[in-house]
Amino acid sequence: MSRESVTAVRDSEGIDLSAWRQRALEFERELNKVVVGQRPVVRLLTIAIFARGHVLLEGDVGVGKTTLLRAAARGLGGAYERVEGTIDLMPADMIYHTYIGEDGRPRVEPGPVIRYGSDLTIFFFNEINRARPQVHSLLLRLMAERSITAFNREYYFPYLLVFADRNRIEREETFELPAAARDRFLMEINISTPADQEVRRQLAFDARFHDSDKLIHAVPESILDHKALPKVAAVIQETIETSPDLERYTLDLWEAVRNPASVGIEIPDVEMGRLIAGGASPRGMSYLLRAARVAAWLDNRTMVVPEDLRSVYFVTMAHRIFFDPIYELRREPIVRELCRQLFERVPAP
């Protein structure tokens, strides 16, 4: 689509991308006030929201994962629902709410997922790896198709974004997410304790950060209009261009991640020929480009450049690359090194 026709589409839909960009930046500013020292994470979260992708946050306990997601939900507006992953949570518990009524008769009412109907904007799944695989399976359809069947009818959630978090400290009574479920998350963002001394001092001593409820309430509600987001996201995807050179570069990256030895990537103590077992799915590549277009738009550009791909590559692709089992235990350092060398080796443009 040429630039002129994109302008026409934008005008016809009444979407002003530059105004939306200002709103997105304001949204970022507000989140950065709540969660300090996590600017890259906030930027990635903003990209995910405008790419209409689900996000999985992982990291240590108490680094602000939940706070960040709650604050983002408030900034987005719309209906918000939250579920705690527990080992006895079953799929029906998410869809139906069952109880004994005052008259002593059993009652079934809509559960957390369908309670708000199609107005549901944020579904926040806390500690997702504590839930059983049955629950993960339910999520597959909810995330991929934004729909669910309950009470013998279909429920659609056009504005839905699933935010989930998990901590990587303990593995007891947890269930690893199946690859299919992980593939449906646009991004898997790792959040760690800020390294900056001043930020650490603030977090420890500034009373503002001690009460997370109060902190989150400082975020203005509905900075972004959640109902307009799908349309804005579509316009962004249509407006931001990718040149043939960038497309070739992206394909080179794809080829290189499937065959790292071909571009001379070397990781100590890793036999590069057998490292990659699979992954880097076509869905992953399309998610990568979606996120890269939003990154370019937030950077006030109309074209995607390799830097955009680099900025979102790790969070969108790392969880879709599957290693030989012998290397899975050392996954984190290897995948980080692999992605870093990928951008150091594949020639751009």
């Binding site: 450049v305 390799p306 830097e307 680099r310 951008f343 150091e344 080796r345 020639p347 751009a348 443009p349």
Partner: peptide
């Protein structure tokens, strides 16, 4: 341009993007 990009890449020992 490509020749110069490759020169930057060689001088830096990695791919150099605009950023």
């Amino acid at each position: 341009l490509l020749k110069l990009h490759r020169a930057f890449d060689l001088a830096a020992g990695r791919r150099v993007l605009a950023d």
